[in-house]
């Protein structure tokens, strides 16, 4: 699989977790914990799938952007 696809799949999971925490108040704490765990787990996944440094950075940036966009979206659900 090309590295960009790996990165986009991993980012999609990050975005889902962030969105879960953002829009489902009951799952807020769980999703937040899972997000942190996911970010920590994604790095070894990328390492073993031989994703290079630049794509790893792209993953970090896209995840951060997703988090910030959700945060910028207005009031808490």
């Amino acid at each position: 699989m090309p590295p960009i696809c790996t990165v986009l799949i991993l980012c999609a999971v990050s975005a889902l977790l962030l969105a879960g925490g953002r829009f489902l108040p009951r799952l807020e704490k769980l999703c937040a914990k899972l997000t942190v765990v996911w970010l920590a787990a994604a790095i070894p996944i990328m390492f073993f799938t031989e994703v290079d440094m630049r794509h790893m950075l792209l993953f970090c940036l896209l995840s951060a952007a997703a988090g910030l966009i959700l945060q910028a979206g207005g009031k808490k659900a």
Binding site: L57, C60, S63, A64, G67, Q71, A72
Partner: peptide, 19 residues
């Protein structure tokens, strides 16, 4: 942004720290 989800902030800064 004050009322927004503060937990997201943790993830955001963690991501930045890693990068």
């Amino acid at each position: 942004a004050r009322g927004a989800l503060m937990r997201t902030e943790t993830a955001f800064y963690l991501t930045l720290a890693v990068a």
